[in-house]
């Protein structure tokens, strides 16, 4: 049986120098099926223009930027959220079909489907 982690190993994210805002790791969950890995990331407050999803050189980078400005009349009483961007980075190898990665953002949850290479999927071998 193939181990899961070597295929999609989570690594710590180092923000690029041009990114001025601090970042934090969002809550995420990875589920494996026969055909694909499904990654679910909680990104509350992130809309589609603020979403950056890049798969390059075996690295999947997820950045979510939040754009909400407090109305001037509102006075802050208590705060638990932050303005920091969400950032997450995964490495993958050739067993993931990078060209067929699909993503859907709905209600602050990003769902990324990473299909497995056909070589990994079960095949029925005819016996002659």
């Amino acid at each position: 049986m193939l181990p899961l982690l070597p295929l999609l190993a989570h690594t710590s994210y180092t923000p690029p120098p041009e990114d001025e805002h601090p970042s934090r790791k969002p809550v995420f969950r990875m589920v494996e099926t026969e055909a694909a890995y499904t990654l679910t990331v909680q990104l509350p407050g992130v809309d589609k223009p603020g979403m950056e999803l890049v798969a390059k050189n075996g690295v999947l980078t997820i950045i979510g930027r939040r754009e909400w400005h407090k109305p001037a009349a509102w006075a802050l009483v208590h705060r638990e959220s932050t303005d920091a961007n969400f950032a997450l980075k995964f490495t993958y190898d050739t067993r993931i079909e990078a060209d067929k990665i699909q993503a859907l953002l709905a209600d602050g949850v990003l769902t990324v489907t990473l299909p497995k290479s056909p070589n990994l999927q079960p095949k029925q071998i005819p016996v002659g």
Partner: peptide, 21 residues
Amino acid sequence: FPVDIYADDVRIYLRAELPGV
């Protein structure tokens, strides 16, 4: 879940992070 609370003279504003609800 995280909650932010704001207020003005007459009202209280509450923002809660509830993704995927």
